[in-house]
Design a protein around this nucleic acid. Structure first.
Lengths: 133, 133
DNA sequence: ATCTTCATGACAACGATTCTCATTCCCGAG
DNA sequence: CTCGGGAATGAGAATCGTTGTCATGAAGAT
């Protein structure tokens, strides 16, 4: 077994292109169902299941970011590669990607101080942007 | 209307005492259903609905912290008052409350730099603790 | 063009959470 | 102490996001 078993396939289909295209249109985080709506509104017919599957695949491939509402709903948004966090307007959803090397180091150090290994973290900032002021 | 309308009542019942008691027993974050189980195991009979209601009320009163699994499930844990974050073992759930004044300032500054007001943030650190190493 | 296989979609199923509403019981007024 | 009103409870139904099922459709290799 020299090759790591690839669970993937990544077959290019009309539906996947439609979801990707819809993601380009949005600026903030959207739920799977909202994205399904957007796809429909663009004139592409894609089943809801497929939207869910596609978004999940993209999330696995780090092509979209996922975050959770207070109510537990998953929100998606296309993202730049690499580790980053988000500054999200809680009114209009406008999102700014931010980086914080200081924070990364702080988190790793805190974890190490307590004997924790294999460290990861989640960090999101919420506020109201100027246009929504 | 001189008095701020208090939506609350906080009537002391056997069930609420049972949930609070169960929360004392646990060290990590537990789901509402797990807490329901713990309450039952302790010999107190409390309906699942009531556990949910009680936990929500306690969360509103900042008596418990809530965080969300990747799968969107809500986890609860009794907490100290004041703003703090968590270092959670992703295997056993053991939790350490941590503070990070630096991070707070960083988040506020980043938000301000982008014109965001009324800022809040979420931050959790995950890892594997020594006992689970 | 053909064939193999992955992808799709309508719908059922699932699981966490919330709602409903008849009943229970906390607690302050009398 | 007793009563009465209204909050609290709980069993089960309902909700809602999400995932599973499986027959059909379509990429892409040969």
């Amino acid at each position: 077994m020299t090759s790591t078993d690839r669970p993937v396939s990544a077959r290019t289909t009309r539906q996947r292109r439609a979801v990707s295209a819809a993601l380009v249109d949005i600026t903030g985080f959207c739920s799977a169902q909202e994205i399904h709506e957007i796809v429909k509104r663009r004139g592409d017919a894609v089943g809801l299941s497929t939207v869910y599957r596609t978004l999940q695949a993209m999330a696995d491939a780090d092509e979209v970011d996922v975050l959770r509402t207070d109510e537990g709903e998953a929100l998606y948004r296309r993202c730049s590669s690499g580790h980053h966090h988000h500054l999200v307007c809680r009114d209009c959803g406008r999102t700014v990607e931010v980086e914080g090397p200081t924070v990364e180091r702080w988190a790793d150090r805190v974890a190490a101080d307590h004997g924790f290994a294999d460290v990861s973290h989640t960090l999101e900032i919420f506020g109201r942007c100027e246009s929504c002021g």
